[in-house]
Write a protein that binds this DNA or RNA. Structure first.
Lengths: 330, 330
DNA sequence: CAGCCATTCTATAACGTTGCATATCGCGCG
DNA sequence: CGCGCGATATGCAACGTTATAGAATGGCTG
């Protein structure tokens, strides 16, 4: 920067002012500085800028595992949106363990970022509140729904109700649910199950806990879950996987067992990952507005960072959803 | 750090020395400092450290799109491996465009990292060499194979030959290839096609260019490609998708058309993404040693960064592969 | 017992930027 | 004509750390 100042015949501070779009600079001066910068190929040192300004222009993103398709897509979009606002995204994988989540919340990772997009899975609201520090945090997902925190999430219950209603409208009456325990009411599984139950009730169909199978949200777990149902002789004419991955695993198992989809069993999922569209048969699912989630969460976080006028209390944003009717449950 | 020094009754520099594992410190002194650090909850300021030392302890990872499953899995592993060595990974998406790749190579992104893991798709070796800068760069993938660069890649040709040989051993003679042009010899498509041709030749089966279909490495492209083959009446008894995604798209289309897999057509892929295992039927593919790629590339890059004794010339590493025989091509 | 070296600790000066306060200039107004 | 004020440019200090050089201590050697 010294060299630029000398080349442009101005002071160090003037160069800095040009770079920071300071208001009161004569166009001629500004041009001289810009020319010198171009000629010397100067690039501002971001580390020094960070040290002095206390800002890194990086956003932290904490999620359990980047290789999970939903998170990979979300991360990709968040990076694109953040990039458009002049921020980078630094990703940290927590493995959904409390220890890692805590260290992401207060460790060195935090120092490197101006704000955090946090998908807590293990920590509870109290612990997070105690260790959130002073920089802004925006929660993603459903694990935390606490007025103290900003939260961007999806309409889990409404979307699950909509897709259940769609299955019911198609004449299905015994809809197996994979990925929640019958008593769940909180977090993604519980909220989606609640939506399912609401739709059943609205249609006057009785809820049967035997149709609810708890399993991890992974392909193989979905396959095993549906295998368990088949083996135990429980009747069902539809499967609602609480995410697409589980639904796809279930579909795989149903096909292997020689069942016809959707005639024998209709299958529906949740998330609308890219894969759902190209599955065979294509998976009926619900798109939870990931684009909107990405945009609103980045927007909210940056507003907090840059001190925009926003509510003092935690803001709760719910993105819209869209039913995607495909061949697995027409 | 000042507070710690005062609390421990030592100089600022001694605290710094303790943090940097300086050799000549009396255990008692070290303990006093550590106690003070613990008591005050002090954490070193990483930005200041970076400014002074010129190191950020971050590695850059440039890839086209994080939402592509292969890259998502690779990124996830790289982050884990790097974390174990005390580095973080900062991801930059290039969209496979030359402009973005170039800006990742020389723009501010570069400043933030001590070294680069670079998956070039658009830039050529000459351009990269001209703009590589002074910090270490390790290439990933096949686009660049130039002695000037360090490169970590997979045995594309050998693995493709092995899986082709497997199809041939199963009695298949007309194996369609999706994802390359008949004349390709370079990059992932070309290398894999070369392996395919080598296996045909070794088995005395004639190469038919009509069986080679160029398409993007995406699901829908794979589906369209195989649809084109079917519609044009070209006979084939097997499909080799040059990556899993293409193969899965093809499989989808074949199933929709009422073909029996693997009886009518065997299908094989390349990459062994998680999805391949749970497809229906499960996809025969080749696992290109991603774990090894992650470990060797991080190792190599960190060695270069920390100035370990390594070859002056570019080092080329090829990870091993493993055939995964599943139901789509038993 | 002086001299030397290994060990242990410290003072000072950077790293490259921006916040704050201030200097300078020219113009309109009383 | 002088004062005040907006516009423009600048100087200095500080952000929190580490590199460099050197000071202090003590033990060993000749």
């Amino acid at each position: 920067m010294n060299d630029v100042a000398r080349a442009a015949g101005v002071s160090l501070k003037t160069v800095s002012n040009v770079l920071n779009d300071y208001e009161f600079i004569r166009p001629a001066t500004k041009q001289k500085v810009l020319d010198a910068i171009a000629e010397l190929g100067y690039e501002a040192n971001l580390t020094a800028r960070s040290l002095r300004s206390g800002k890194t222009r990086m956003l932290g993103l904490v999620l359990s595992d980047l290789s999970i398709p939903y998170y990979a897509e979300l991360a990709s979009r968040l990076m694109t949106v953040a990039g458009g606002r002049g921020y980078r995204v630094l990703v940290e994988q927590s493995g959904a363990t409390a220890a890692h989540e805590l260290s992401a919340l207060q460790g060195p990772f935090r120092q490197l970022t101006d704000g955090l997009l946090f998908t807590p899975l293990a920590l509870d609201a109290g612990t997070i509140a105690a260790h959130r520090g002073t920089k802004p945090v925006v929660m993603l997902g459903e694990h935390i729904a606490d007025p103290r925190f900003d939260l961007v999430t999806m309409k889990n219950a409404e979307a699950a109700a909509a897709i259940t209603a769609h299955l019911l409208a198609g004449g299905r009456r015994r809809i197996a649910v994979l990925g929640a325990a019958a008593g769940d009411t909180a977090d993604s599984p519980g909220l989606r199950l609640t939506g399912y139950r609401a739709a059943l009730e609205a249609a006057g169909v009785e809820f049967d806990p035997a149709l609810v199978v708890q399993c991890d949200w992974r392909r193989d777990a979905g396959a095993s879950a549906v295998a368990g149902l088949l083996d135990s002789g429980i009747r069902f004419d539809a499967v609602f996987g609480l995410n697409d991955t589980v639904a796809l695993g279930a579909m795989h198992e149903l096909l292997i067992r020689g069942l016809k989809l959707p005639d024998d069993v209709a299958v529906a999922g949740f998330d609308d990952i890219d894969e759902a569209r190209f599955a065979s048969p294509a998976l009926t699912t619900v798109s939870p507005g990931m684009e909107e989630i990405a945009e609103r969460s980045i927007q909210l976080l940056i507003d907090r960072i840059e001190g925009a006028e926003t509510a003092a209390e935690g803001l709760h944003v719910e993105a819209g959803f869209e039913l995607k009717v495909r061949d697995s449950a027409p």
